[in-house]
């Protein structure tokens, strides 16, 4: 049985200009120990998905419908205190900006120890020991001293390590990392990604990595879910997504990327047009207005096609060889 199963998730936000549907009927599942990358651009609904799983959607936002089964229970049906027990203990989350997610007036050690005391019922001394142990695990030098530092005394990379230490301190079954390396420099990013990979192998926790960076996904994730306009447009193994993308948006995304393994003077092929305006979503496929291969029926709701071997795409034309069709035009 899957560890996490999201069915038909719909999360909306009430705004001055009307209701915005940030996540629109998303379904996917995740096995224990799996690493799934959720890729999408701003407004694709990737962060709202993770906040919905954690039930951290606050007004004016609302989870309108859907089910989120975690370890056999629907998280959306749990009472608040039951959910508090799941949050931080069974499912942990790390955010993009470690400075704003750490409390500036508490030491790093106190913040890790708090989680351990709360969820694992350890006493003060034990919790502090665990905090030091966790900091050692994420390779903070001289952890027995740094445990008494405040967040501002840590560098950006160290803060993100401390966040990882905190998230993993209760041995969660699922770790959701929302753009964990976006605020970091590339050499520090490499360190943090390596660390996450290692800890994942060691603890066996499932990971959902949310990012806009396709390179980071290729490096870390076995499976990839591509989101656009609030829903999944393609799902598959990293190899399927990067080598044989079937949805024009995924293809466009890969073609628009300047990459080190392509000829330096190759011209980029951008995706024309602008990202969808969430207030005026297209009726059918959200990508249709920007799509080169658009058909009339793309303006109606497009179902998901199973391409075999776990590869899914939400596109009428995903079985055609579109790049060849495009070249022939």
């Amino acid at each position: 049985m899957a560890l996490l199963e999201v069915r038909n998730l719909r999360t909306t936000f009430q705004t001055e200009d009307g209701v915005v549907t940030a996540v629109n009927g998303l379904s996917f599942s995740l096995d224990a120990g799996q690493t799934l990358g959720i890729v999408g651009e701003s407004g694709s609904g990737k962060s709202v998905t993770s906040l919905s799983i954690m039930r951290l959607i606050d007004r004016p936002g609302r989870i309108e419908s859907g089910e989120i089964f975690f370890d056999g229970r629907d998280l959306l049906k749990l009472r608040d205190e039951e959910m508090r027990h799941v949050r931080g203990h069974r499912i942990a989350m790390i955010f993009q900006d470690p400075m704003t997610s750490l409390n500036p007036v508490l030491t790093i050690g106190e913040q890790i120890a708090e989680v351990v005391r709360l969820h694992l019922g350890r006493n003060h001394r034990e919790a502090r020991e665990t905090a030091i142990e966790m900091l050692r695990k994420v390779r903070i030098p001289s952890p027995e001293k740094r445990v008494d530092d405040y967040p501002h005394q840590f560098s950006g990379g160290m803060r993100q390590r401390a966040m990882i230490a905190m998230a993993l301190s209760c041995n969660p079954q699922l770790l959701i990392a929302d753009e964990p390396t976006t605020a970091l420099d590339v050499t520090i990013q490499a360190q943090v990604l390596e660390l996450m990979n290692e800890l994942q192998r060691e603890t066996g926790a499932a990971i959902i990595l949310i990012t806009h960076d396709l390179g980071v996904v290729a490096e870390t994730c076995k499976d990839v879910l591509v989101m656009y306009g609030g829903n999944m447009v393609e799902y598959g193994s990293a190899r399927q997504i990067f080598a044989e993308p079937r949805m024009p948006y995924t293809q466009g995304l890969l073609a628009s990327l300047p990459r080190l393994d392509a000829p330096a003077n190759a011209r980029l092929t951008p995706i024309p047009g602008q990202p969808p305006n969430l207030h005026r979503m297209p009726p059918g496929c959200a990508f249709a207005p920007r799509c080169t291969y658009r058909l009339e029926r793309c303006d109606e709701i497009v179902p998901v096609t199973d391409l075999g071997h776990g590869h899914l795409a939400r596109c009428w034309r995903c079985t055609e060889n579109l790049q060849a069709a495009g070249a022939a035009r």
Binding site: S155, G157, M158, D185, V186, T187, I188, Q189, A190, Q191, L193, E194, D213, L214, G215, V216, V217, A218, E219, A238, R239, F242, A243, L254, L257, R259, L260, D261
Partner: peptide, 23 residues
Amino acid sequence: AAIPVPNPEVQSAQKRVLLSGDV
């Protein structure tokens, strides 16, 4: 070497030199 390349096949083959420490 630190730049993640969007190609899973390359990733598994190549082992990177990691810089230690912070700026």
